[in-house]
Amino acid sequence: MPKEQKAGCARPTGGVVGQTPPPQDENKKTPAPEVRKMIQVGTKAPDFTAPCYFQGKFASVQLSEYLGKWVVLCFYPGDFTFV
């Protein structure tokens, strides 16, 4: 039976029952160093494209379209949480 869950400040997720998560660390720790490298202040922000919702319309944006402007990029754990 579904058990009621309190709404928290992050999107709840599930997982496979009775299965321990695969030991990702060993294999996953060695991918391309460029991708794994932590982003640093004073260096270029990695460019990306993303679908978006903006003023009633569905659209797509690319970070580099905003060159020449100041940008605040905010990540948050899920819609319907505080930001």
């Binding site: 982003i39 922000a45 970070l63 905003y66 100041w70 940008v71 605040v72 990029l73 905010c74 990540f75 948050y76 754990p77 930001v83």
Partner: peptide
């Protein structure tokens, strides 16, 4: 994605 904020 956790609460990350970047000024670019």
């Amino acid at each position: 994605d956790v609460r990350g904020r970047f000024i670019i």
